[in-house]
Design a protein around this nucleic acid. Structure first.
Length: 803
DNA sequence: GAGCATCGGGG
DNA sequence: GTGTACGATGCTC
């Protein structure tokens, strides 16, 4: 029969001595089905003479009493990093036979591709993309309870991905009287929140006044049963949670086992499979949104932690419901009537998890399409794996053999190798006017493709001795006549992105398009790192070195051209360059970019990033040289662009942040030193006379461990102790708010909770010397103000030290 | 400062 | 499951 469906996940099972690939998915009507296909496991051995083949064919090993032999052997030829190899493709009966048979022959022959997961191998070999609309011809067979199964006969896929999917977000609250330590074997689950498109509910087992979203059960066992029931009812395609691989689902699993309840969540009525690092449910795609966000968005998020509260704020602009979760156990035991707030908190967590999922799903989908692994894997692997599997997916068209992973010795060897990085032109501290910024669009990816940097064409004999191949490293060259496959697959990504980008200009609100562009950029930018990453299969030090060598070459070329044309270089780092016009026009800067682009290779492009009327570069430490990446610019609209200043750090008071930003604004926008001085003097005297409001002198610091574990008692630790004495929670992770109060003695003895300090009763001098002055000191240094200029009237303890 | 160990996320 | 993260930070010597 013919059938259309959307595959969600892939697994395999050995039935009657043969491995079967199981593709779980759902039809357009929403019925979960399982499509079954046969597939043979295999690996390769390099063949130097034919007698080896005969001995491999005859090989029999004893596997705990089971006679293990190879099923059959085929002879194939493949390319391998510029050479040709004759190989035996050794077919095995079962996936688990592969490592065993490989171990038996590895000392006699070189072996390859023996550690490729069976299901991944299937997807790559058959070129199947999960989540894509799939039409099959298949015969219905009976294999599992609870789900219809079909034996695959013919398969065809389209580009169109699954729409209208059912997503269920899950979040639990647990009884945790100890604070940081979780003991799932002992401590029960108190609440489970479930959130889907048309469904929101909090399950719990103590009664309190609440809204209609809360459903009360008789006890934890009941709660778990009801949870299982609802999952079955909703029958989601995706189940998601925040750190659900490491917390929510394993916790539910442990509690269910504790009560001897079988939670048959799977489409085939199987229980969840909780591994060490992930949890899977047959027929439901489990995505831990924390893992994906952390690995793929990573530091680009700009949030200091990956806590749900911080991540949701950055990505969604949404926060958790403000409740002190440390009080949950106590409230549960002693004042259950107050639990409604915790139910609200619980549901809000599930809701933001759901919203996060919706937000990042297009990125997951795009990676699934490009890289070709399952969404389960895609959402759990890092950059290097994404690049690696993208390459593996493309290899078929090059008939190229996959290199083995490095062994431990190779890894530690590679880890110790350092090579020259990017070029940095240190700025001279000062204020500059009429700045323009140029930067290279995707510098490293375009260098790789333009110079054919690829391990398979490294050091080819045909190009030996050719001049000007590498700007610095004569002994490293790449073929000029044959394109390497890594350069080739990367070029594919870059060109694909270039084709879509204009569309995004046309439809700027199309989030799917945006996700495609972002994902392609992410992948392209990861290639350079991949080539130099110690654990890569296609690790290539010569490639990585050549990339940075060309990077330095091109940026220096731009610097030379710019200074030859009368521009002054202020700062440059890796792929960007800051110049001053020095009386020339913006048009002449644009013209320069245009001229440089004429000389650059095809895909490389220098871009005119923008014009800034003024900018300030400061030095990090005392000394003549400027600091890397510490500058502030103001654009023509008067907007400040600040990089590297510590404004955003948490343990800085509002008054210090505000002072820094205002000083930068006055200096850059109004170009008025005197006004900046007047302004800062007013701030300092405001602090001295203690007219600055208390809210502006509150300092926020996060407690990182238990109070008793601190050897040195900083002001925030001292305040945490005071909180504890008052019965307020102050465990690891608590954000401590404090004000340094007036009086004599050391800082920590003066640190107080904000509510303990009456208006103006803070230590003005502390805020002058330890908060505001450090934030603006460097700026005034550049303006030429020294010593007491800022502090006429105020005491000078700080300035005397530093000026 | 190298080398090893733990942590992150979750209540 | 044809497997075992990874990078940053803190502690010890």
């Amino acid at each position: 029969m013919k059938l259309a469906f959307y595959p969600l996940d892939i697994a395999y099972k050995v039935i009657d001595g043969a491995p079967l690939i199981l593709i779980f998915g759902r039809t357009e009507k929403g019925e979960k089905i399982c499509v079954v296909d046969g597939f043979e496991p295999y690996f390769y051995a390099e063949i130097e003479n034919f007698s080896v083949i005969e001995s491999i064919k005859k090989l029999v090993i004893d596997d705990n009493g089971r006679r293990l032999s190879v099923k059959s052997v085929e002879l194939v030829e493949k390319s391998f990093l510029g050479t040709k190899k004759k190989l035996a493709k050794i077919l095995c009966a079962l996936p688990q036979d592969v490592p065993k048979l490989r171990a038996a022959v590895k000392n006699a022959v070189k072996t390859y591709e023996y550690d490729i997961k069976f299901t991944r191998r299937y997807l790559v070999d058959k070129n199947i993309i999960l989540l894509a609309r799939t039409e099959i011809e298949a015969k219905e067979i009976s294999l599992f309870q609870g789900i219809r199964c079909f034996r695959l006969e013919f398969i065809e896929q389209s580009d169109e991905l699954i729409k209208e999917k059912i997503v269920l977000a899950v979040d639990i609250e647990t009884y945790n009287p100890l604070g940081k330590q979780f003991i799932p074997e002992e401590h029960p689950i108190l609440m489970i929140a479930l959130y889907s498109k048309n469904f929101r509910k909090v399950l719990t087992w103590k009664r309190f006044n609440s809204d209609a979203n809360v459903e009360f059960l008789e006890g934890e066992a009941d709660l778990l049963r009801r949870f299982g029931e609802i999952v079955k009812e909703i029958n989601p395609d995706f189940i998601t949670g925040y750190y659900s691989d490491g917390f929510d689902l394993p916790y539910i699993n442990t509690r269910a086992k504790h009560h001897k309840i079988k939670l048959k969540l799977g489409a085939d009525d199987s229980e969840m499979q909780a591994g060490d690092e992930s949890v899977s449910i047959t027929g439901i795609l489990h995505i831990d949104i924390f893992k994906f966000v952390k690995r793929v968005f990573g530091r680009a998020l700009g949030s200091s932690t990956y806590k749900l509260d911080d991540v949701a704020e950055v990505i969604l602009g949404e926060k958790k419901h403000a409740v002190d979760i440390e009080n949950l156990a106590n409230t549960w035991d002693n004042s259950p009537e107050l639990l409604a707030e915790f139910a609200k908190y619980n549901l809000q967590d599930a809701k933001i998890t759901y919203n996060l999922f919706e937000k990042v799903l297009p990125n997951i989908e795009e990676l699934v399409k490009i890289v070709g692994l399952s969404p389960f894997d895609i959402s759990r692997i890092g950059f290097s794996q994404l690049v690696e599997w993208f390459i593996i997916k493309q290899l078929k068209q090059y008939n190229e053999l996959i290199p083995n992973k490095p062994v431990a010795g190779q890894i530690s060897e590679r880890m110790n190798i350092k090579y020259k990085g990017a070029f940095v032109f240190e700025p001279v501290p000062g204020i500059y006017h009429d700045l323009v910024i140029f930067d290279f669009r995707s510098l490293y990816p375009t260098i790789i493709t333009s110079h054919n940097i690829s391990p398979d064409v490294l050091g080819c004999s045909c190009c030996r001795g050719m001049k000007n191949q590498n700007p610095e490293l004569e002994k490293i060259w790449f073929c000029t006549s044959r394109q390497g496959f890594i350069a080739s697959v990367l070029e594919d990504i870059i060109r694909r992105r270039m084709r879509i980008k204009p569309l995004l200009k046309q439809y700027p609100n199309d989030i799917l398009l945006k996700a495609r562009v972002d994902t392609l950029k992410l992948l392209a930018n990861s290639f350079y790192g991949y080539l130099g990453f110690y654990a890569s299969r296609w690790y290539c030090l010569e490639c990585a070195e050549t990339v940075t060598a060309f990077g330095r070459h091109y940026i220096k070329k731009v610097i030379d051209e710019a200074s030859n044309n009368g521009f002054r270089i202020v700062y440059s780092d890796t792929d960007s360059i800051f110049l001053t016009l020095d009386g020339k026009t913006k048009e002449s800067a644009l013209k320069l970019v245009e001229n440089i682009n004429k000389e650059l290779p095809d895909l490389m492009e220098l871009e005119y990033e923008g014009y800034y009327p003024a900018g300030i570069f400061v030095s990090v430490k005392e000394g003549a040289y400027g600091a890397k990446k510490k500058y502030a610019l103001v654009n023509e609209q008067g907007k400040l662009k600040i990089a590297g200043f510590e404004t955003v750090r948490r343990n800085v008071s509002i008054i210090a942040k505000e002072a820094q930003e205002n000083v930068l604004g006055i200096v850059l926008k109004e170009n008025n030193k005197e006004k900046a001085i007047e302004y800062i003097k007013s701030v300092l005297s405001g602090l001295k006379e203690r007219k600055v409001e208390n809210e502006k002198v509150v300092i926020y610091t996060k407690l990182s461990k238990e109070i008793d574990d601190y050897d040195s008692i900083g002001p925030h630790v001292a305040v945490a102790k005071r909180m504890k004495a008052k019965g307020l929670p102050a465990g690891p992770g608590t954000l401590i708010k404090f004000i340094v109060g007036e009086g004599d003695g050391i800082i920590r003895d003066k640190a107080r909770l904000p509510e303990e300090v009456e208006p103006g009763k803070y230590d003005g001098e502390y805020y002058i010397n330890n908060q505001v002055l450090p934030a603006v000191e460097k700026i005034f240094e550049i303006l030429g103000y020294k010593k007491d200029a800022l502090l006429s009237g105020a005491r000078q303890s700080y300035l005397n030290k530093f000026f």
